[in-house]
């Protein structure tokens, strides 16, 4: 017997992909500098074919090809990664409030990156790798600490315990950051700005790193969709039906750390994407991770691209930090969801 859900899946993905593409296109066309649609398209096509553009289109080319396109790409990929990480964590911990930002994993990753900057941890020929590797390591380390503490205090990992420990851990991480900033005086500037994070100046290389991470981690998580379903029903239940609980938990935590670490090292901490997107998606496609994970990836990309569009254009020529926009939108949506779920 065929299930309705399985039919649903096919056209649903097509729809999600279509919406994502449309939003992507809109975000490339719209921006702080207005460029006629016709020129945008021509410039992109010229670039793809490797033909130099008309001199009349030089400004359009300079804005679209090296600046706007890689930025929108990075934003989409980062949104996708964060939403995926959020969805996976919410499943693993059976807690709809789990997310990189609420658990303090993003702060941990920032701390790692700050340490890398302050102590000049770099890898020869890979200028970005130092902060990235440290961000990933610290994301994983923070997750292990937070969950370790939570298990100690409260075996059932209840929402309150997790959020409380997350808040405490975030505060701890920022105190350590303050200490480092105090002692690493000549690097002060870059560190203080670093904690704000920015996707401005995102390059194609950043996009490639994000895409590679998303590809690998996305594949790993999608292959664990059934295990995540089992965890979302309950960790004991997962063990009872034959899930290798320890292995799956470790794999998911490492994957999530990679996703968050890479995003944080490229774009700084961007809150609420991983929290709100899977929430909204769950309302549409249900809690089954086979549908939830891919749908969250599409929606995360759409959400962050739109947030970035607002950040880039709302106060033109000024620009807002993207985290401000996601937090405002995210908090509002979150309260709405919470209110509606309580009323039901």
């Amino acid at each position: 017997m065929k299930r309705i859900g399985e039919h649903f899946q096919g056209w649903m993905y097509a729809l999600f992909a279509l919406v994502t593409l449309c939003v992507f296109f809109a975000c490339v066309c719209l921006g702080s500098v207005s460029i006629p649609l016709r020129n945008t398209v021509r410039v992109i096509f010229d670039e793809v074919r490797g033909v130099p553009s008309d001199t009349a289109l030089r400004l359009a080319r300079s804005v679209i090809v090296p600046v706007r396109l890689p930025r929108v790409l990075c934003v989409a990929l980062a949104g996708s990664s964060l939403a995926l990480a959020g969805a996976a964590m919410q499943g693993l911990l059976k807690n709809p409030l789990a997310d990189g930002s609420t658990l303090g994993v993003s702060s941990g990753a920032s701390l790692g990156a700050v340490i890398a900057i302050a102590f000049g941890i770099t890898f020869p020929k890979l200028p970005f790798a130092g902060t990235m590797v440290m961000a990933i390591l610290f994301a994983l380390l923070s997750l292990l600490i937070i969950l370790g503490l939570a298990y100690r205090l409260d075996c059932s990992l209840s929402t309150n315990t997790i959020i409380l420990i997350g808040v405490i851990f975030s505060m701890f991480a920022s105190s350590v950051m303050s200490i480092i900033i105090t002692f690493a005086s000549e690097h002060i500037k870059s560190i203080t700005f670093w904690t704000m994070g920015s996707l401005q100046g995102a390059s194609y290389r950043n996009a490639a790193v994000l895409a590679a991470t998303l590809l690998v981690c996305g594949t790993v998580l999608l292959l664990h969709a059934r295990e995540l379903n089992a965890f979302a029903v309950g960790e004991d239940n997962a063990r009872e039906i034959g899930v290798n609980v320890r292995r799956v938990r470790l794999v998911v935590l490492i994957t999530v750390s990679c996703l968050i670490g890479v995003c944080v090292s490229i774009g700084g901490t961007i809150g609420f994407v991983g929290l709100v997107t899977p929430h909204m998606v769950r309302m549409i496609v249900g809690p089954n991770h086979k549908r939830l994970l891919p749908a969250s990836m599409f929606s995360g990309a759409v959400f962050l691209m739109l947030a970035d569009l607002v950040a880039r254009t709302l106060l033109n020529p000024r620009e807002l930090p993207i985290g401000v926009v996601t937090s405002i939108v995210g908090a509002a949506v979150f309260v709405l969801i919470y209110y509606r779920s309580r009323r039901r």
Binding site: L59, V63, V67, R318, E319
Partner: peptide, 23 residues
């Protein structure tokens, strides 16, 4: 003010003064 990179390219300044410290 925080500004868009695109805006700088469009406004095409004749001079740029940066106060970034070289580390």
């Amino acid at each position: 003010a925080q500004i868009s990179e695109e805006q700088v390219i469009e406004r095409n300044p004749d001079y740029i003064v940066t106060i970034t410290m070289y580390l």
